[in-house]
């Protein structure tokens, strides 16, 4: 695939990073993503296979980090699994061979734009964007929420660290919303 040059969700060759005041927004293009949904009545098989393969399957509203696989809960008996893109670009195939027919697996890598948010405290930013009670939820909290009409997944890694997955086609609108809120908050 050497001949095809990928573009980032923001239409660039390289990932974008933006800083405003204490906040840094970093586009992450190095994350491979796939959905894993248990087949009906196969949760036990999936759990066993996942454990063996080192794929975490955390409980509701939770993200669990691991190497190489991290994952967060998105729906009943359904997760998004993350892995490094460089080694796991074919994440769906890799997971299929690891988890067998106990799960339905779908590549999601390019369905999303990923932004890492970093600041001392993200609460002033996020309270202008979504209804998540960011200061109150624990680290590792993962939820779907809405920011400026866009459905996004928000994963809290700390009071000043979060990962955001937004719809890839609206990457520019989402970044604009983040920057606008940042100028308002900081």
């Amino acid at each position: 695939m050497a001949s095809l040059q990928p573009l980032t969700a923001l239409g660039k060759r390289e990932a974008t990073a933006v800083t405003h005041g204490p906040l840094t927004i970093t586009e992450r293009t190095d994350v491979a993503l796939a959905s894993v949904a248990a087949r009906k009545g196969r949760m036990a098989d999936l759990s066993a296979a996942a454990q063996k393969a080192g794929v975490p399957l955390p409980g509701p509203a939770t993200h669990q980090a691991g190497i190489p696989y991290s994952a967060f809960w998105v729906a009943p008996e359904m997760w998004f699994v993350e892995a490094p893109h460089a080694t796991h670009e074919l994440i769906a195939d890799l997971l299929k061979s690891a988890l067998g027919d106990a799960a339905s697996i779908t590549e999601q890598t390019d369905a999303w734009v990923a932004f890492d948010l970093a600041a001392t405290d993200l609460a002033p930013l996020l309270e202008r964007l979504c209804n998540v009670d960011f200061p109150a939820v624990p680290n590792g909290y993962a939820t779907r929420t809405v920011m400026e009409h866009l459905g996004v997944y928000l994963v809290k890694h700390g009071p000043g660290a979060a990962r955001l997955y937004g719809p890839r086609s609206s990457a520019e609108s989402l970044l604009h919303a983040l920057e606008t809120a940042a100028h308002s908050a900081f």
């Binding site: 509701p60 809960w73 998105v74 729906a75 009943p76 939820t143 779907r144 929420t145 809405v146 459905g151």
Partner: peptide, 9 residues
């Protein structure tokens, strides 16, 4: 009610 902006339940 459908949790469209949530877990799709």
């Amino acid at each position: 009610w459908y949790h469209e902006q949530g877990d799709r339940s």
